[in-house]
Amino acid sequence: MGIEHDTLVAISKSWGLFYLIALAIAATAYALWPSNAKRFEHAKNSILDDDDKPLK
């Protein structure tokens, strides 16, 4: 086998940890970013619109 067990453990304990933390920060920041609020507000309300035809 090319990749040793210890290598995998090391990768998962370092990079694996950091990329998940980075991802969590990115996702939370995107969700809470103030300028996105309007877009999200529109998205969650627009599905309740009754007009059941594609927009031109």
Binding site: A27, A31, L32, E41, A43, K44, N45, I47, L48
Partner: peptide, 12 residues
């Protein structure tokens, strides 16, 4: 007939 409680939470 009600929007999802928290859209932000759904993204997270």
């Amino acid at each position: 007939g009600r929007p999802i409680y928290s859209y932000r939470l759904s993204i997270i």
